[in-house]
């Protein structure tokens, strides 16, 4: 039996969609029994959402005022405590999971695998390295605890309809006070979330200005898409950092990805290679983005975007 503990990411009482993908990954470990741990200030609703994911055996709810907003230094000792008796501890490879899980791995003195893209056995995993330009298969020693982050773009969410038992847990741990949350600037909008959207329209440096970047927003709104950006566009200030797609930004797997005025640096391509259909619009016919695009359109984006909208 492989007993897998998954750390739930959540915000504003909503379970992050990445958690159901972690469940899919955990379910691909042979003979898995899956537990989700929810650390929150008042996590009843989040625990309920976690319990309704198919394949989850139980949900552990740890309510404590210090648990929200989530801080890795506060959560890690609690995760390590709950991990006792588990063979694996999984978290999403989001900024939340990447911040937290290595700290957990170090506390447990466990083997740590980042960005699991497939499970070959209970100890053997495949993961991308060199910005996805190589894939390594790694293996931990049998019987050794394993902490991993799950590359969410590699997994479909597990289905809804489960009814796992929810247990409240009190941990006798004093949270550290050396790390304090100050604020978060969450640019919430009505648009779909970049990480989970089925359609994404991304803009690059060729947009040329913040004003022109609004063209991307216009097209995205027309087709109900999330907005993304290349590193060059973010560096130039056309789009905020959380919209960056690529090796150091978000790794996404939408049904449709439309790259506009993005040349397609390797670091960008690594963030989109799991997209079902890629469309590239660029005036340079030699741009590397066309090497991976299912549909390429060569021309001036300022002329082409209005034309696309007209045809929709």
């Amino acid at each position: 039996m492989n007993r897998i503990l998954i750390v739930a990411e959540h915000a504003g009482g909503m379970l992050n969609a990445a958690v159901a993908k972690c469940v899919s990954c955990a379910a691909s470990v042979p003979d898995a029994e899956i537990t989700i741990a929810v650390f929150a200030a008042d996590g009843a609703a989040v625990a309920q959402a976690a319990a309704s994911i198919m394949g989850v055996a139980r949900v552990l709810l740890v309510d404590h005022a210090a648990n929200e907003p989530a801080l890795a230094a506060v959560l890690a000792p609690q995760v390590a405590r709950l991990a006792e008796g588990h063979s694996h501890v999984f978290g999403p490879s989001t900024t939340f999971g990447k911040d937290l899980m290595p700290r957990v791995a170090a506390l447990l003195d466990a083997a740590h695998v980042s960005d699991v893209m497939s499970v070959e056995s209970a100890q053997r995993f495949r993961r991308p390295v060199y910005a996805g330009n190589a894939i390594v298969t790694v293996e931990a020693a049998a019987g050794e605890p394993i902490v991993a982050t799950v590359r969410v773009a590699s997994y479909q969410p597990a289905a809804q309809g489960g009814s796992a038992k929810i247990e409240s847990v009190k941990l006798d741990l004093a949270p550290p006070t050396h790390t304090r949350f100050v604020s978060v600037s969450a640019a919430r909008s009505d648009r779909p979330d970049l990480q989970t959207a089925s359609r994404v329209v991304s803009g690059g440096r060729a947009l040329g200005s913040v004003e022109n970047f609004a063209l991307i927003q216009g097209l995205a709104d027309r087709i109900g898409a999330a907005i993304g950006a290349s590193r060059a566009a973010v560096d130039a200030g056309y789009a905020p950092n959380e919209l960056q797609v690529g090796q150091t930004g978000k790794i996404i797997a939408p049904e449709l990805y439309i790259a506009i005025g993005i040349s397609g640096a390797i670091q960008h391509l690594t963030g989109i290679k799991d997209a079902r259909t890629i469309v590239a619009i660029n005036k340079d016919a030699e741009a590397p983005i066309f090497e991976v695009a299912d549909y390429g359109l060569v021309g001036d984006l300022f002329a082409l975007i209005p034309e696309i909208e007209k045809n929709l």
Partner: peptide, 19 residues
Amino acid sequence: RLKILKYEPPQQRQKGVIV
């Protein structure tokens, strides 16, 4: 802690069409 069993090149996407 982790034995590296092998390195592989990633799966390549098929080149598409220019419309």
